[in-house]
Simulated scan of single mutants.
Amino acid sequence: MAALQADRYRLLHPTWGDRYGMTHIAVSRDGTPVTVRVLASDRPAPRRAVIDLITGIRHPNLATVRDVLVDGRVAIAADAVLGRSLRRARLGTDELLRVGSGLTGALTALHEHGVWHRTLSPSTVMLDDLGRAVLTDVAVGHLLDLPGSAADDWRALAELLSTVWRNTHGRWRRPPPTLRDVWADTMARARDMG
């Protein structure tokens, strides 16, 4: 793995890791910023058709997978998304609608190719400098053969948007009515009854 990374990408520093592997900030030979995700599991090398499939999916709300490196371990090189994750994001209604729309398009593009994301969470969604939502870790679930389906991805998206909404707006409960609200409601009903 080190030889392939050294040949194509220069790892600068690790950014974060989880049970699926470690993500590094890196640069390609032409100086383009990328992320290299070294998978934790010793999986068999993916077939060329799988690599071609994953590297061929394009959508403005997906971090493009540039390469899948295989040398003892599997690593995924993808375009770096400069911005912040949704993990602690606080978004207004219009921003949340834009994020949801962008992620819907990204998941649709994946599903049209028979690829499920399988690890969708606020940590795998970045807001770039323009405020565009970009889905990362596109190939991790597919290459690790994690269980999942398109329905699971849609459920995860609904949970993600709900979480961001709650982080921003608190609980979904309406505030308790004031005496004035109760009075106005009672008077409106009385007028309607004639």
Rank of each mutant, 00 (worst) to 15 (best):
M1E: 09
A3V: 14
Q5G: 11
A6D: 14
A6C: 09
D7H: 14
D7M: 14
R8S: 10
Y9A: 09
P14V: 11
P14E: 09
T15V: 15
D18F: 02
D18I: 06
R19E: 07
Y20N: 08
M22N: 10
T23D: 00
T23N: 03
H24R: 09
I25H: 12
A26P: 06
A26L: 10
V27R: 13
V27P: 02
R29H: 05
R29T: 12
R29A: 13
D30S: 14
D30A: 14
G31V: 03
T35S: 12
V38R: 11
V38G: 06
L39F: 03
S41W: 06
A45K: 07
P46Q: 11
L53F: 06
I54C: 04
I54G: 00
G56D: 01
G56I: 06
R58A: 15
R58I: 13
H59R: 11
H59T: 06
H59L: 07
N61A: 15
N61K: 04
L62F: 03
A63T: 12
T64Y: 05
V68N: 03
V70W: 05
D71F: 00
G72M: 13
G72H: 09
A75H: 04
A75E: 03
A77L: 11
A77R: 08
A78D: 04
A78M: 08
D79T: 14
V81Y: 01
G83M: 07
S85F: 07
R87Y: 09
L91E: 01
E95I: 07
L96K: 02
R98I: 08
G100Y: 02
G100Q: 09
S101P: 03
G102T: 02
A106F: 02
A106V: 11
L107W: 00
L107V: 06
L107R: 04
T108N: 12
L110R: 06
H111E: 12
H111G: 11
E112Y: 04
E112P: 04
G114C: 03
W116D: 01
H117C: 07
H117M: 09
H117N: 01
S121E: 01
S121A: 13
P122A: 03
P122D: 05
S123T: 14
T124C: 05
M126C: 01
D129E: 15
L130Y: 12
L130W: 13
L130R: 15
R132F: 01
R132L: 08
D137E: 14
V138P: 03
G141T: 00
H142F: 01
L143Q: 02
D145S: 13
D145E: 15
P147F: 03
G148A: 04
S149A: 08
A151V: 05
D153R: 02
W154F: 00
R155G: 06
A156K: 03
A158I: 05
A158L: 07
E159K: 09
L161I: 07
S162D: 13
T163A: 12
W165N: 13
R166H: 10
N167W: 05
T168H: 01
H169T: 13
R171Q: 09
R171E: 12
W172A: 13
R174M: 11
L179W: 04
L179T: 12
R180T: 15
R180A: 15
D181Q: 15
D181V: 10
D185H: 09
D185Q: 13
M187Y: 06
A188H: 12
R189S: 13
A190I: 11
D192I: 04
D192V: 04
D192L: 13
M193K: 12
